[in-house]
Design a protein around this nucleic acid. Structure first.
Length: 104
DNA sequence: GGAGTGACTTTTT
DNA sequence: GAAAAAGCCACTC
């Protein structure tokens, strides 16, 4: 039985490049309301590059908080990466969020 | 088995 | 509109 976390990772991997998803959607896809549990899974993030944690945002379209990989990384860098993938970030918020939102 | 934590969400002040 | 509090679920110690 895979842990709840691994399911989150699997779903995250399904997110195509240039799209984003929300913690809420993931939790809903898993038939649960463990929004924070999803965040927990991301925080553990055993799959650094395979799981695009930066593609997961809050329900409002804001970036939320990311840990980067080490203490030096900040959210700003992740935003740049998202922008490179085709996602427009404006003032820590995703532009055209609804269009970029990927649902399961 | 119980208490604490968390990269959240929603409602209310 | 922004900030704070409460609520919720799963994981870890």
């Amino acid at each position: 039985m895979k842990s709840f976390n691994e399911r989150c990772y699997s779903l995250l991997k399904k997110v195509p490049r240039g799209k984003v998803t929300t913690y809420k959607e993931i939790a809903h896809a898993l038939k649960t309301r463990a929004y924070q549990a999803v965040g927990n899974a991301m925080r553990n993030n055993p799959y650094s590059p395979e799981v695009p944690c930066h593609r997961v945002v809050k329900s409002e379209g804001s970036i939320g908080g990311f840990r980067g990989e080490k203490t030096g990384k900040v959210i700003s860098d992740k935003i740049s990466m998202l922008r490179k993938e085709g996602i427009i970030i404006e003032n820590k918020k995703i532009k055209n969020f609804e269009k970029k939102l990927f649902t399961f």
